[in-house]
Write a protein that binds this DNA or RNA. Sequence first.
DNA 1: CCTATAATTCGACATATGTCGAACAATAGA
DNA 2: TCTATTGTTCGACATATGTCGAATTATAGG
Lengths: 104, 104
Amino acid sequence: MEILAQRFKALGNPHRVELMYRMMTCCAPGTRCSADQAARLCVGEVGDGLAIAPSTLSHHLKELHQAGLIQMQRNGKQVECWVEPTVLEQLASFFQGQVMETKK
Amino acid sequence: MEILAQRFKALGNPHRVELMYRMMTCCAPGTRCSADQAARLCVGEVGDGLAIAPSTLSHHLKELHQAGLIQMQRNGKQVECWVEPTVLEQLASFFQGQVMETKK
DNA sequence: CCTATAATTCGACATATGTCGAACAATAGA
DNA sequence: TCTATTGTTCGACATATGTCGAATTATAGG
């Protein structure tokens, strides 16, 4: 329940929930990426159009990462970000009365 | 997206997510109440066993209510609290890539 | 009307959060 | 090696949050 609260807290900010949504739905508007291959956005792309400083964007992505909601990996000059589908499934299941035992 | 963030923020506290879970699953352990009739707990019941002052409990329930997550209604000396199933469905649908237009 | 029960409101307080700009780090390419 | 690009880290700051106890409100029952 503690970890669950951490994850919801990370989503409890307008900028972060927007970032999360963009990463979840970066394949086609309003849809979710296929279950086996999550698409990736680099830091600059995912924050494009948001009226926040680069340092603030970096901070928010770090929060999402530390909460276990997103993955991050350096690729050349850029850092790629994506959402693992299992994370979405676990969170959705809470609202169906299931409390998953999330590790980490 | 703003309203969504408000709801997740309300769930972003260990005590509040615990309270929410109790209200969601007050019929049978690990299950959700039937779709048409949400079961109700009074304020004292829902906070039973949590190591927080009554004033803190009241504060948390107010937060959940203001975020649109729970309903509250006075019944005699007590105040009943419950979760509308539609709220749960809307929140779950976010993690399937759906952003619902939540009023209020 | 008085009392007990159930819950809320109201300061007060320590701590956490969101934001910025400046400085720094990592990488690619000329 | 120098430079431009892409992100991160580090204070600093104003504001928000979680908590409590004391006082208050609402109700039911003598």
